[in-house]
Design a protein around this nucleic acid. Structure first.
Lengths: 341, 341
DNA sequence: GCACAAATTCAAAGCGCTTTGAAATATTAA
DNA sequence: TTAATATTTCAAAGCGCTTTGAATTTGTGC
């Protein structure tokens, strides 16, 4: 079923039918109804490739998925994607996932900027100095970064206040009397982890506590590395009386380590975790319920996509770059119930 | 940079340039080199929409993502997707994710079958009687199902032997002396969960143990529902001495419930879990290490995509439907170390 | 009834690629 | 050398849509 065939059956030109279908005003209501009805009956769907070729828009946003290192992002990726998808369902657009060997990532972005495969791009997990962003600011493909990076030119981003919220969490622990606070974090080359690190460190120093690098451990987001990190921290002397943990997966492993050492989380060791709202792993259901810095990564996916959509709609009208900081709540629960150690 | 421009610079026709680039034999090696080089220099990328329009292929495979209920699949979805992506990087194709309100899912599939947006489709989590499959077998869009469903016509699928592996796991528990085996499973309307249920039930009956429906609990894949299910099972009298658990997320919750009841997993209650190889949650690292039925869902994603790609390549040459069953290992670890209860 | 404007509709060009069928050139056999 | 064949190149049509600029129809005021 093509436009041509449809218009022949209607005894109208392709122009009129196309306009009727796309809601242009220069077609009479009577004709429009007639067209719409037959289109529905015939189950007509415009061919997307033809449409893209004619309009220059694909109605797809792109996400480059590095295939070697995606273990890394993964526990959060699905949830983030759900947020992206939720917005796109409203906008009636699709996601193009571009699987790319890590070694060819940059070229992939450069290609995308030229090829018109997608109308815009979403960038996740930026590094402190992100080469992808540096490359894209020079192109005219709309993109929004989930997180921030160091870049001398303006770019659109949607982030949370990682530094601020981890500063708050650290402050809370200090005010509860903790002097030795272990920190289990993501890789510091990633901006979000670096920001959290800065929030932690600066708050310690603000309270006159010397920052001890051996209390701060980086790792991939797996239960196991949470366990290993906690196990290592528990060997530290004096033993940390509190743990600050960058995500729920780490927390699982850390709590396993605590128990294995005969320590009860929340009683012998205070815990604060950053909670991205993985629906299958709820912080308030833990034993004890976990004190968290809390921010929905699904919401982030939704909001960043809304921003990208906005830039796409504006087209070449060089819109001001947007930036959005999503709320982070500090939710106090049982895992910080005791003071001191 | 278009083909036209490129061919003008070369003093060749578009035909020749197109053929040189696409490796057709009717162009001399000298010309081909010349073309390829300039194309590289100019950083030429053919416009994908134009290409699709001309060839009828998009180099995209589709995945419909129901946006309301995707909480459900999610913990496994990322890992599955990683496998899909891994194969597609080799085949140089992309994934189109089509976000769809659950209520419009079927129409979305029908549309896709007509519109030529994708070259093929991947179906996940089929129901026992799956309407999507029933609808697609009538179309000529290639698709492969991850799992199986009841359908009178042939279709391609890639699955694991859920029934067999859960039968084996149940048998192991029975032979270890367990008579009361609790089962925490996914929703029985989904075929994979139903198969597991059948494996469990038939094995019980085979050993002359009456199947007790109150020992079999269904739920969404969250830590919390694993906890609730286990808590409920522990109230059962006589108390089950073993738990069969459908995935690692459930297992987290179940073990929390056990501990809360003062029971030690593997000692007071035996546990077997199905392990999909979530890289961030490893069964052998649990405490105690978990006995599992083990099968990589990432591998499944890779294999199913390979199958789909094969069907796409074959095109209209009505290929025989393919079916593949991936291996499931029964790996015995500490969580089944004790006999009886 | 007519001239004029407004409302509808249309034919045709164009988006950037592939592919068919024909033309030009190079190669070989006699 | 010439005819016949093989090799290389080309012009043009077509994929299914949008959109421009023109043409047709309808409606208005006098």
């Amino acid at each position: 079923m093509s436009l041509k065939e449809l218009s022949q059956r209607l005894g109208l030109s392709q122009t009129t039918v196309s306009r009727a279908l796309n809601g242009y005003p220069e077609v009479s209501e009577r004709t429009r109804q007639r067209v719409m009805q037959l289109a529905r009956e015939m189950n007509y769907r415009p061919n997307p490739s033809a449409k893209s070729l004619a309009t220059g828009r694909t109605e797809h946003i792109g996400i480059v998925l590095p295939i070697e290192k995606n273990l890394f992002v993964e526990p959060l990726f699905g949830e983030y994607l759900a947020g992206v998808a939720q917005f796109l369902a409203e906008a009636d657009m699709d996601i193009t996932i571009i699987p790319t060997p890590f070694s060819q990532e940059l070229e992939a972005y450069e290609q995308l900027a030229m090829s018109g495969r997608v109308d815009g791009l979403l960038i996740s997990s930026p590094a402190v100095n992100d080469a992808r962003v540096a490359s894209l600011v020079g192109s005219n493909l709309p993109f929004v970064v989930h997180g921030r990076t160091h870049c001398d030119q303006a770019y659109s981003y949607c982030d949370i206040d990682n530094q601020g919220s981890f500063a708050r969490a650290t402050r809370l622990l200090i005010e509860l009397g903790h002097q030795h606070i272990g920190f289990i974090n993501g890789d510091h080359s990633l901006n979000y982890a670096n920001d959290r690190y800065l929030g932690y460190k600066s708050t310690l120093e603000q309270y006159g506590i010397t920052y001890d690098p051996s209390l701060c451990i980086q790792g991939e987001i797996t239960e196991e590395s949470g366990f290993n990190a906690a196990a290592q921290l528990l060997m530290h002397r004096p033993r940390p009386s509190a743990l600050l943990i960058s995500n729920m997966i780490f927390a699982l492993g850390a709590m396993r380590a605590l128990r294995q050492h005969g320590l009860e989380p929340g009683y012998n060791v205070a815990i604060i975790v950053h909670d991205d709202h993985l629906p299958y792993l709820q912080a308030d259901k833990f034993d004890p319920p976990l004190t968290t810095t809390s921010s929905s990564i699904r919401k982030a996916g939704y909001e960043i996509t809304k921003m990208l959509h906005h830039e796409i709609e504006l087209g070449g009208n060089a819109p001001a770059k947007q930036q959005q900081l999503l709320e982070v709540d500090l939710i106090i629960r049982g895992s910080t119930r005791i003071r001191r150690n």
